[in-house]
Design a protein around this nucleic acid. Structure first.
Lengths: 222, 222
DNA sequence: GACCTCCTATAACGTTGTTATGTACAGAGG
DNA sequence: CCTCTGTACATAACAACGTTATAGGAGGTC
């Protein structure tokens, strides 16, 4: 586990898969073209991953790792509400810049590998069991907990409140990716920002407090 | 357009496709097995639909039609807040009973037909352009508008507010389908109901008013 | 040199969506 | 009754997919 050679065939395959997914969609993730792109044989997919489903699992894991890193990189200010808002915007930012990856992470895509023999056929893919996904969610839980501790909002169970904020942001982001809100940035001001503000106000924050915190963020757009 | 013979090959194919999708997942929607299930030749898919992508488009349209009918069937009480809450629960009900169909409707699945030559490669499928989808959304907009008119909540733009409620419910439902909230009904009480309540409170409704309306619904579970 | 192990390259198999080609049957006009 | 026409069906073939089987080659250890 030395995290050694980065330029191995396995790593190149994984990187190419992420790149291909994001630029050409899930149906472009095919064994032969993928292997050819990194000058490897088709068999490399099987020797290094075991098959396309396992390779996709690794892509998902990679996606959650990047997502987690992105959310971890959100700077902590002294203002817990500002942090909470910043987290929501960073969430949107990641999803919009990696829409295909985001949908794959949450099991909302079924790539070309339809040879689905033994994939979890319980009901669906439950990505919440991935440790990186849990870690990403915990950033949100922590921000909520701090806001509760500092008395900015009221909540009995920070985890439940985080689930609410997660649900709302998740749904908004997917609809924005689908193009429901029209041109770039339009949904942000008409939907996401007021929705989060309304949620926080419903959680006991004063509207003036929230909007002041919102204004305290740089540009409020990014 | 007489909407005549229901028992035509085309209709049987469509019905079988919806049933197969919901029971066996998107990857099970394959031309040969589907045609065999209704005792038709594989070519029937092409003579009646033109190909698998077009058949899937019809399945999507059928899904939105059912969704629209489901939301239209929500009874209107005199209480606009009750109606709004009932709409949200009916929304969840439909999505949970037809998870595969729901995801297909919102472009969140890429079924077996990866022979995607001419599908909308702009960025993604934008299902909002389907008239049935717009109709379903308008039910929500109407309910919001009534709540605003009756002074139960405050909103400058009912469409924008409907977009917020839609986003939140959409995201919650997808996470519940993915199994994030654990056992049946758990997410409803810990996440969806309080989230909607918080949103409405943030929109100017009094918490007592909302919770009274919520209690006024039958069982509050269905 | 001989052996083992890992990775790679080529070829083949079964199944997918799709296309091409031939066939059956209904109705219209003579 | 025959023929023409058009729509729906059935059979077979094609390219491409994931996957498997099998053979070849590089690097270390004895």
């Amino acid at each position: 586990m030395t995290e050694a050679a980065k330029d191995t065939v396995r790593q190149r395959l994984l990187d190419a898969a992420v790149r291909k997914l994001e630029s050409n969609g899930p149906e472009s993730l095919q064994a032969r073209p993928l292997a050819a792109e990194v000058n490897a044989s088709t068999m490399a997919v099987y020797t290094h991953f075991g098959g396309m489903p396992q390779l996709l699992d690794e892509v998902t894991r990679e996606g959650f790792a990047r997502f987690d890193a992105e959310l971890a990189g959100v700077p902590h200010s002294g203002d817990s509400l500002v942090d909470l808002l910043a987290l929501g915007l960073a969430y949107r930012q990641f999803a919009l810049q990696n829409p295909q990856l985001y949908r794959l992470m949450f099991g909302l895509t079924t790539p070309g590998t339809r040879r689905a023999k033994e994939r979890d056929l319980t009901t669906d893919g439950s990505p919440s069991t991935l440790s990186e996904g849990v870690s990403a969610f915990n950033h949100l839980v922590g921000a909520v907990a701090k806001a509760v501790e500092s008395g900015r909002i009221h909540a009995e169970d920070p985890v439940a409140v985080a689930g609410q904020i997660w649900s709302a942001t998740h749904g908004y982001v997917l609809l924005e990716i689908a193009g429901v809100f029209g041109r770039e940035g339009h949904g942000l001001v008409t939907t996401l920002r007021p929705m989060i503000i309304n949620l926080l106000v419903g959680l006991g924050a004063s509207r003036e407090d929230v909007e002041a915190s919102m204004a305290r963020m740089s540009g409020a757009g990014r």
